[in-house]
Design a protein around this nucleic acid. Structure first.
Lengths: 202, 202
DNA sequence: TGGATGACTGTACTTTGGTGCAATAGTCAT
DNA sequence: ATGACTATTGCACCAAAGTACAGTCATCCA
């Protein structure tokens, strides 16, 4: 596997050279028309505040993979980097072993992102999946409540007043209040707005 | 790095043994109280249709990492696996080289997911980021309100009481009420719960 | 048969939410 | 300077929300 460092300064080169003894240097201007029979990995620096798009439209031949080195790889940067065609994005002060790991994954055509970001992505997706099946997921608050209490809770969450709820459920306003009191206690909340947030998955 | 195959049958063992010559075997029942001074990686099989939760509440000591081998690792399975504490999830017919890659990442405390899934996660997040430029989208209700009113509206939407809002904004409860009254009129709603629904996009 | 639970209601009460009217003060544009 | 808008607050008032205590029915379970 060939590795090229593109416009990196001494600090990043240190670890990179340690990780890949055969590392070659390249200036940004040379990249555009660059050719090599075997392909390999370009290691690019993304400076703080720099836009991803300014450094990605390089080296789009399939046999070259681009890895960005960022100082603070946050979610949006990495996501847009990968969306723009990069194969990976990692911390610019990553240790040589990590860099080798990245190269291994990227070299096989994979994508690489750091574990903290991966956890964020997974977490975000997990949350999205948890919220979606609102119809079939017991949603936790449901199983704590009785049938009638669920009906009341849903109306409250929709913004109805006690009077309205009493009317549509054909019970006294007093009874609505009674149900609500037990709901609040069961769920450990204090008023209808908190209930609304809970029911609506916030 | 130690590796244990938990309840795997011949087919999966083949590649796994090739990847890790020192592989040891373990039955599922032995896992619960299992101890080892060095820790290592458990390779578990998740059969089609089997629920993730049934095989994850194992081996929660920090020095043990669990990798699930699935036949068809789709998005929801992998996400819930990782959410349940697994360190990775890959195809049960993965090649030895891939397994070694996984072990490397997982052994260092990272998470590992296949590239196709990673692409999905990244894609989904990219789409989410693109669709919800929450910072610049006026969200319709925002542009109708003054700066101060927006602050109040957001706190109400989060479930705060007038008293609490007054405290954090360092104004009188009366003033909070005043802001709310104008908010209600501007947005054509009648109370804080409806405001909450509006602000939270429901 | 007794006990637990849930649905339902009443009276009385406190707290919170929300409005009307009025006033002071700052900013900004005409 | 004058008017429009916003932020702020006070006082009074009403309505809605929520609590405390008590009671009736019905069902289900040991």
């Amino acid at each position: 596997m060939n590795h090229w460092a593109v416009d990196l300064d001494a600090l990043e080169l240190l670890f990179l050279k340690e990780a890949f003894p055969g590392l070659k240097l390249l200036s940004r201007s040379e990249v555009s028309g660059f050719q090599h029979p075997e392909g390999g990995v370009f290691w690019l620096r993304l400076k703080a505040g720099q836009d991803v798009s300014t450094c990605l439209p390089l080296a789009h031949a399939a046999e070259f993979h681009v890895v960005l080195l960022c100082d603070e790889p946050d979610e949006s940067v990495v996501v847009s980097a990968l969306a723009a065609g990069a194969a990976g994005c990692c911390n610019s002060r990553a240790a040589p072993e990590v860099l080798q790991q990245v190269a291994l994954v990227v070299g096989n055509g994979g994508l690489w992102v750091g574990q903290s970001l991966l956890q964020k992505l997974v977490g975000a997706t997990a949350r999205a999946l948890a919220q979606r099946p609102a119809t079939e997921a017991p949603a936790s608050w449901r199983q704590a409540l009785s049938e009638r209490e669920i009906q009341v809770a849903e109306r409250v969450a929709a913004g109805d007043s006690n009077k309205e709820i009493a009317r549509v459920l054909d019970i006294t306003e007093r009874t609505v209040k009674a149900h609500l009191s037990t709901i609040f206690e069961k769920l450990g909340i204090r008023d209808r707005l908190q209930l609304s947030l809970r029911v609506n998955g916030l």
